[in-house]
Design a protein around this nucleic acid. Structure first.
Length: 196
DNA sequence: AGCGTGATCTTT
DNA sequence: AAGATCACGCTG
């Protein structure tokens, strides 16, 4: 399947959060090892309209990558041990982003199992911290983009509307009521937040 | 249900 | 300079 190009990432953040479901995330390791997963859960983060977004008060040292061109990868470190993978959306300087919260592991399973210390498939990438670890993503990836040799997305047929579920976001205290989490209904690889 | 772990942001 | 918070995951 072909790679997704620039215009795919330029859509409004909420639409991109839905469109990303089902797409294949690819990380190529040195030695041409493919680590890949199918995105099954996302969350939208806007900028100034969204109190829970890192960008809601404007540009800082940490969030500056969110202001870059769509398709850029924004990684940050939290709780002293986890890296979070975000994909920048909207036109440049708007600072929208989509948090990738869960994937279904596809290729590189042995590597992922070693990274994660488990071989239970539904536990490899069923959460944002877990998937970053499984895909060998850390702070060095911050600011890279999805148009190079190392990271990109592969296309997949759009999902039927009835397979897409919506809920409030998880793990935040501000703007809790916003229904900006998107996930594939009844998929066993979504995080242990809320299921329907 | 409780806590580790460290960067970042807010308040003094 | 100090304190609070955190887009989490693991043990128990």
């Amino acid at each position: 399947m072909e790679r997704l190009e620039k215009q795919f990432y330029e859509q409004p953040t909420l639409e991109l959060a839905e469109q990303l479901l089902g797409k294949i995330f690819v990380h190529i390791l040195p030695g041409n090892i493919r680590l890949t997963g199918r995105i099954v859960e996302t969350e939208a983060y806007l900028s100034h309209q969204d109190e829970a977004s890192h960008a809601w008060r404007g540009r800082t040292t940490r969030n500056q990558i969110m202001f870059r061109k769509p398709g850029t990868i924004y990684i940050y470190f939290t709780y002293g041990c986890h890296y979070m993978l975000n994909i920048v959306s909207e036109p440049e300087h708007c600072a929208g982003a989509v948090l990738v919260r869960a994937m279904e592991p596809l290729e590189g399973l042995l590597f992922m199992q070693e990274q994660r210390g488990t071989s239970v498939m539904t536990n490899l990438m069923s959460g944002p911290g877990k998937l970053a670890r499984a895909l060998a993503i850390d702070g060095n990836c911050n600011g890279q983009d999805l148009f190079g040799k190392e990271f990109f997305l592969e296309n997949a047929p759009p999902l039927p509307k009835e397979m897409i579920a919506t809920s409030t976001r998880v793990g935040i205290s501000k703007s809790r009521e916003l229904p900006w989490r998107k996930f594939i209904r009844n998929n066993p690889h979504v995080s242990k937040g809320k299921v329907t």
